[in-house]
């Protein structure tokens, strides 16, 4: 094996990959959220549709999006590899474990929380991303695909909004540990910066999923 594959398949190397892909996804979510806010513009979706058109046709953004698909896949595949390795490291379990005495809920359930996000991604991509790329969508007044109509139709169903909000709660918990954990994995642990990183991580983990969840709630109430 070469030194690179050697490194990336070590326990520390695998965590490095989790950390870098996770941090990329954290940046991506901010960009995605900024775009979503255009759903709330009072123009029948024209601004949002124009934005969706731009995001699916601009060559730089298209290239970045292939990176994004790859990173999500790598994050998921690596998490499965890690969960399996970690399970194998303790073939016989304890009869009693007092996890809450020494660690946070999120940190002990990253796999389950990640799985909730995965289920969300499947629904989300099927309903919006797939429709935008390959579905039969009507055109809006400006001649762009009317993705807004697809989204607002979905968000007029209470159960769809409920699933969306619940998944955002899962994301919040995943990130409440993941954000600061990613820095620790990269080796960034310093008495000057770590307390700030931890606070920033908690703020991010509350604010971003909350803002994501707010949009479908507002659209449901307006529908």
């Amino acid at each position: 094996m070469s030194w690179l594959s050697d490194t990336l398949t070590s326990t520390i190397g695998r965590k490095l990959v989790m950390s870098l892909t996770g941090l990329f996804l954290i940046i991506f979510l901010v960009v995605h959220l900024a775009g979503n806010f255009q759903l709330l513009a009072d123009d029948g979706g024209l601004a949002f549709n124009a934005y969706a058109k731009f995001m699916t046709s601009n060559p730089i953004i298209k290239t970045t999006s292939y990176g994004l698909y790859a990173f999500i896949l790598i994050h998921i595949i690596m998490s499965i590899a890690l969960v399996r390795k970690n399970k194998a490291a303790r073939p016989v379990g304890y009869s009693e474990v007092k996890g809450s005495a020494n660690s946070s809920f999120s940190s002990r359930n990253m796999g389950i929380l990640g799985f909730i996000i995965f289920v969300f991604l499947v629904i989300h991509l099927r309903n919006f991303w797939y429709e935008m790329h390959w579905g039969a969508i009507q055109m809006d007044d400006a001649g762009n695909k009317d993705l807004y109509k697809v989204v607002s139709a979905a968000f007029s169903e209470w159960w769809y909004v409920a699933i969306y909000v619940l998944c955002m709660v899962g994301l919040a918990f995943h990130l409440s540990h993941g954000f600061s954990s990613a820095f620790q994995t990269l080796g960034v642990n310093h008495s000057k910066y770590t307390p700030f990183i931890k606070k920033l991580g908690i703020a991010y983990a509350i604010l971003i999923p909350f803002a994501f969840a707010l949009i479908p709630i507002i659209m449901f109430l307006n529908s």
Binding site: T11, K15, A89, S104
Partner: peptide, 18 residues
């Protein structure tokens, strides 16, 4: 030391702090 740690079959770190 890391290579030996992995070879012994210990798990990876999730930074739980336990």
């Amino acid at each position: 030391m890391v290579a030996q740690m992995d070879a012994e079959g210990f798990g990876a770190c999730t930074n739980t702090g336990a």
